[in-house]
Design a protein around this nucleic acid. Sequence first.
DNA 1: ACAATAAGTTACCGAACGGTTACCTTGATT
DNA 2: AATCAAGGTAACCGTTCGGTAACTTATTGT
Lengths: 124, 124
Amino acid sequence: MSFSHFDAEHCFINKFTTLIAGKWKPILLYLIQNDINRFSLMMEHVPNISRKVLTEQLRGLESDGLIYRDELKSKAPKVVIYHLTEKGEKLRQLVDEIIRWGMTYDKEEVPDEMKKILDSDFAQ
Amino acid sequence: MSFSHFDAEHCFINKFTTLIAGKWKPILLYLIQNDINRFSLMMEHVPNISRKVLTEQLRGLESDGLIYRDELKSKAPKVVIYHLTEKGEKLRQLVDEIIRWGMTYDKEEVPDEMKKILDSDFAQ
DNA sequence: ACAATAAGTTACCGAACGGTTACCTTGATT
DNA sequence: AATCAAGGTAACCGTTCGGTAACTTATTGT
């Protein structure tokens, strides 16, 4: 096999990491998949995130086609529900494999309390 | 299942993307695995990368335990050979799954010339 | 009429990341 | 003695990313 030049633009891994690599994006995808799917719910479950950044990350996931917004019309204060798209669900499957990799390979780097959680059905 | 608060520090996906998400890191891992394993070889095969950034990315991969430096002593001009560690090889396997995901799911976003390459045994 | 609430938006800031250019070190070759 | 080549390091710069704090909009219950 001979190698020509390489271009970061066409690298699949970079495409993948661009999709997933906002600080809060993997967590948001996980939450949305588990019905923590409204702005205020996410604010409750993710401390240390600001409204602005939450909005940005959600908009990013949306414009990459991983989630979609369902804005319920004629509701009291505005109600928006986020859902995974098909693409988002497929990505989540891949994400689950990475988590499995992390659990088996990276286990010694995980704090003890986290291990208990990981041994249950819970995985961030 | 009930949800408590979420912390980006303990997110496996973030750990993974931190390992892999330098602009050139996936490409460098791929090259090293395929014996393009010296500084000057990498400079040849990755146009648009500077010495400084190549050094930084390699140092990052090294300090994350994905590659190691083998500096051949008493050589004419300095010779350094990079190798994947065991951890690096395991990571590459995961990376291959992501590439497979990219090839099947993301195919329509790939330029034609790239498809030919991807259909062969070549994958960045 | 007015306050409360969901879901934002705007202005601003500091740190991190990738990039450019120039310089350095060490041993081999001429 | 001078030069070349491999593999860097140092100084500097602009953009992007996450974060803080304050302001906005629309509707519904009191």
